[in-house]
Design a protein around this nucleic acid. Sequence first.
DNA 1: TTGTAGGCGTTATCAG
DNA 2: CTGATAACGCCTACAA
Lengths: 340, 340
Amino acid sequence: MTNLRQPTITIKDVAQACGVAPSTVSNALTGKGYVRAKTRDQVIATAARLGYRASSLARGLRLQRTWTVGVLLADIANPFFSALVRGMEDVLWARHYNLMLCNTDYDKEKEAAYLRHLVDKRLDGIILASTAADSPDVMLLRERGMPFVMLNRRHRTLATDYVGIDNRRGTATAVQHLAELGHSRIAFIRGPQDSSAAEDRLSGYLDEMRRRFALFDEQLIAPGDYSIEAGRRAGARFLALEKRPTAIVSANDFMAIGAMAVLREHGLTVPADMSVTGFDDIYVAALPWIDLTTLNPHSRELGARTAEALLSRLDKTANGPADIVLAPTLIHRGTTAPPR
Amino acid sequence: MTNLRQPTITIKDVAQACGVAPSTVSNALTGKGYVRAKTRDQVIATAARLGYRASSLARGLRLQRTWTVGVLLADIANPFFSALVRGMEDVLWARHYNLMLCNTDYDKEKEAAYLRHLVDKRLDGIILASTAADSPDVMLLRERGMPFVMLNRRHRTLATDYVGIDNRRGTATAVQHLAELGHSRIAFIRGPQDSSAAEDRLSGYLDEMRRRFALFDEQLIAPGDYSIEAGRRAGARFLALEKRPTAIVSANDFMAIGAMAVLREHGLTVPADMSVTGFDDIYVAALPWIDLTTLNPHSRELGARTAEALLSRLDKTANGPADIVLAPTLIHRGTTAPPR
DNA sequence: TTGTAGGCGTTATCAG
DNA sequence: CTGATAACGCCTACAA
């Protein structure tokens, strides 16, 4: 139970124990510089014996690096985000980087405060998966020359490294899928308005609807914030319409599930009475009771690609801004069928 | 796109700009020591003007602290863990600590390697939510005097700070609930054998079964690893039994869901043909299609309490080892009913 | 091949 | 009240 910090063993201790200079220990352990094989082995052995571990703090101060990257996201409890994080962690771990998790909770002030924190901590780089399109905080990073990558949201004015989903194509594909099944009265549940990704999902829907059906009914669009509850509200709203839609495209899976819950409560059957599509393909969507037709954005890969983009930036291996866009795949499950 | 590190502004720059010594700047900014109000204000103003941010790295080296804690867990994509992390983040953020996320992926070597990493980084403390009960890695932390708290798993030999669920009571409550409904042939799907929490959940089941029904059938226990797939296997196994159980208690929600999926495929109805209970109360359990009777371990609060325990340890505010145990609450939903 | 010296950016100590 | 100095632990020139 004692948390008395043991006297930490430093490079000097190792040097003394070996009868060499600290710089020799450093050279031996990092494998740089010249050092006789015999000396090297001896140093390595005593370092191990003493349990010496070089302090990242001291080393970081000297080298101006931390081998740590931060990720800002809205809510780690959202399966889409946790899948992203898994992907990032995979590649970061392989490259000996650590991940600092920053949960902004959809709160702009918290986000700004976190960013300042990360600057103070001198992180090597940052992944922004939560920032609004017009956030001024991003400027801070740019000003301080801190490398960062934007994940699935673009800044309105700044040119930055970007990795994301082809959101537009995603919802357009969903509309296309439903149209081919024979639907024309297709509703949409949108995401938060300050997210460029959410806006793109709306655009994809709108474009495809206009292209195919020319006319367009404003009532078919309901607001939402990606929560299950918002999906319920949207579903109720569509049900109250005089001319009900025959299908619903949702900007994410959570809202699709919420809408389906309401339909169910009203005695409607999916897909017989109403088709529904989601976006994200969280694991819940694959459960037999839900069996939701949705768009798989390959979240884990997306996270991995983002981390890679950041690391290339750190390696100075990257040149122009990265702009990587993954196309989502339509997963046809049991919630879509021709209208009756 | 340039990632040229701007020349970072140091305390010296601020000092020079103000015509005072670095130590005065330090005193003014941290509010320690004596410094004339006028000087202080001037320093604060120029620091702000220059955009000076003290380096946590340098400060950490000097103060021997990092204001960062690490959390080791198996899989952040598991909703139980992400809920824990939310709880931790809440209290850590309020106390100006950052969180380093370590996903061990159920891999002992990765876990050990992560631990070494965290030692190198001189984190202030660690939350262990993944370690097996007999892990030798924990010894490493103890030896180095690094504060840590074990979350929902106890070390077999070491006395450590501990925060967890009353797992035993949880499954006992589930059995009790089913027994009161009239069940006596109650099966159990267990968790991984190297987890003390999983073993406790088994014990709670066993104790209550023995207490109530004296006799006990070994066949009613199926192995599992907390995955949906394991639940499917267990469900299939119970269905193949000559004397089928009338109810299943699962060590977690995922496996309960897997079992229910198999039952469904075999045309059985829950709870009419078979009752099922879970453990964790992940949000999926509350969806109307699943509507799983389960045990709510208050995960978010659990995470918060764990972080608090760690922080009191860091503050040296704690004395003896903390031992906090939260009782899970039975959430009675639609998957349990009297046997037919 | 090895050792010495200096500095990375802070803060605690202590003298002025 | 303020400032010089040393030290936190490491790495890298450069000298030997």
